[in-house]
Design a binder for these strands. Structure first.
Length: 491
RNA sequence: GGUUUCCUAGCUCAAUGGUAGAGCAGUUGACUCUUAAUCAAUUGGUUCCGGGUUCGAGUCCCGGGGGAACCA
């Protein structure tokens, strides 16, 4: 007799689980061919419990095993579904020897099961399902991350988001809040008779913003395309087409840096309303953000994660001119009539890097971006921006150097820019050409043709959904509010 | 792109240049109201990869891969 070298696989959780699966299949049960019909989600089920009436209500619930406590002939386990966690109580005398043994030995943390049973209250006051019958409907062949510390390795959190969602309640809640915010935005706008539309991602010219686009190619047409960097120009064509209130929530792509605040693909909301203007957009965005706070977060103020300051969404929102903020910061009432050399010196004096090659408005905007914007924590409408910053807005009637726009800053971040949209095709063409001259951008002639057919006066607004979610969920990074942030492909 | 920093068991983390360890998870056993259940026993390592220095490298050096923070 040769002794068979019994290889100890007890340390290899993957192998152990595969072994359990093989055993089940050998007895004629394949969990991957089983299913269950849940009658309730976990929290809905718990809500059915009537005080003092144990085992009166029968439910079927399903989810992933996240806690497993065997205690001889009775066991408590917990399963997790979309709504959260519910405790289950398994007893040998209810299930019988064979099924109880299958439960004890066949199941592992991470498995997905369905159970039918009755609701009761444990000694310690937790509503629990007393299990009469159960089915395994998916075997987890890999173990879950540790239960107490969860998953902390940021790389694994992003690459295997599903594990993060299973194990880190905070991530789960934060990303679910994002879904609810987006859904609420749709409802809010639809209630105001805005129509949601979808416009092309593949575009011949990347318009509506200044950013480096991703290049791609259509084989059959034999044409180079870019992925859109903005939604703006196609939505405005909708205004020409007679859709007076439109919006799109869509992905934009910018081939630029990746950071805590930037992902190469990000989600924008853009809204256009005919016969409105940037002041109308102020009301709209205030109402929208307050509505999200009330209905989704259930609050009227939130704590700003970075500064610790409490941001108040109620009350009057501050409104201030760009120019006044710059003068205040530089302490120079004559800043805007200084020469370029003086501005370079002025920027450097404030401790910032200033490139002499920059345009004057860029020098000034460096001060705004680096020293002013990060300090604006409470909701602030910055108005009357220099016209060079955006070629798509109307010039302020009594100040040809500025445009009828605002930038809403909250928590030191630009949350929502809005314009009185330029609808004069000739002015628009001149602005495009001036910009094209500087940056060698192609002019979107097709858009100008549309404007020549007549676009109603309109207010337009954009909201960076990712940044809004950072703000409202107290996240530290854009990666925490994007399910699958961009990473280098793993090895 | 630059600077700094991190990568050790399935997960969370230890380890003066000198025998790679702990908790959880896993395995075996006990336990019919547990709450990070408890108790007893126990398995588990290409220390990200490739070189180098050294009697000796998880640790020091060089190159590469990936992550993070700050800067651009």
């Amino acid at each position: 007799m040769s002794e068979t070298p019994s290889t100890d696989i007890s340390h290899d959780q993957h192998a152990v689980r595969r072994g359990k699966l093989a055993e089940m299949r050998a007895t004629g049960f394949d969990p991957f061919r089983a299913n269950v019909s849940p009658t309730h989600f976990s929290q809905d089920a718990k809500a059915l419990y009537v005080e003092g009436q144990d085992n009166a209500v029968t439910v079927t619930v399903a989810g992933r095993l996240v806690t497993f406590r065997v205690q001889g002939g009775s066991s408590f386990v917990k399963i997790q579904d979309q709504q959260g966690v519910i405790q289950l109580y398994f007893r040998k005398d209810v299930l019988g020897e064979e099924r109880y043994q299958f439960f004890k030995k066949g199941l592992d943390l991470g498995d997905i099961i369905g159970v039918t049973g009755t609701l009761f209250l444990t000694k310690t006051g937790e509503i629990t399902v007393r299990v009469d019958a159960f089915t395994l409907v998916s075997k987890a062949l890999r173990p879950l991350p540790e239960k107490w510390n969860g998953l902390t390795d940021s790389e694994q959190i992003y690459r295997q988001r599903y594990l993060d969602l299973i194990v880190n309640t905070e991530s789960r809640n934060r990303l679910m809040t994002r879904s609810k915010i987006v859904s609420h935005i749709r409802r809010f706008l639809e209630d105001r008779q805005f129509l949601e539309v979808e416009t092309p991602v593949l575009q011949a010219i990347a318009g509506g913003a200044a950013a480096r686009p991703f290049q791609t190619h259509h084989n059959t047409l034999g044409v180079d395309f870019v992925l859109r960097i903005s939604l703006e120009l196609y939505l405005k064509r909708m205004l020409v087409g007679g859709y007076d209130r439109v919006f799109e929530i869509g992905r934009n792509f910018r081939n630029e840096g990746v950071s805590r605040r930037h992902n190469p693909e990000f989600t924008m909301l853009e809204v256009y309303q005919a016969y409105s203007d940037y002041r109308g957009m102020m009301t709209l965005v205030q109402d929208l953000l307050r509505s999200i706070c009330q209905n989704i977060l259930g609050v009227s103020e939130i704590k700003h994660a970075a500064s610790g300051e409490v941001i108040n969404f109620g009350g009057e929102w501050r409104e201030v001119r760009y120019k006044d903020l710059i003068i205040e910061k530089t302490g120079d009432a004559g800043w805007f009539s200084r020469s370029k050399e003086e501005k370079v010196a002025g920027v450097q004096k404030l401790g910032l890097y200033a490139d002499p090659k920059w345009e004057e408005f860029e020098l000034t905007n460096e001060i705004f971006g680096k020293l002013i914007e990060p300090k604006l924590i409470q909701p602030t409408f910055v108005t009357h921006l220099p016209k060079e910053l955006c070629p798509l807005a109307k010039i302020t009637p009594d100040d040809p150097g500025t445009i009828d726009v605002f930038e809403l800053i909250i928590g030191g971040m630009e949350i929502a820019p809005a314009y009185s949209e330029q609808n004069d095709p000739d002015v628009q063409r001149a602005m495009f050409e001036a910009q094209a001259g500087e940056e060698q951008q192609k002019v979107d002639q097709d858009f100008l043709l549309a404007l020549e057919h007549g676009m109603p006066p309109a207010g337009g607004m954009g909201i960076g959904i990712d940044r809004l979610c950072i703000l409202l969920t107290g996240a530290e990074s854009i990666r925490d509010v994007i399910l699958y942030p961009q990473l280098r492909p793993g090895s």
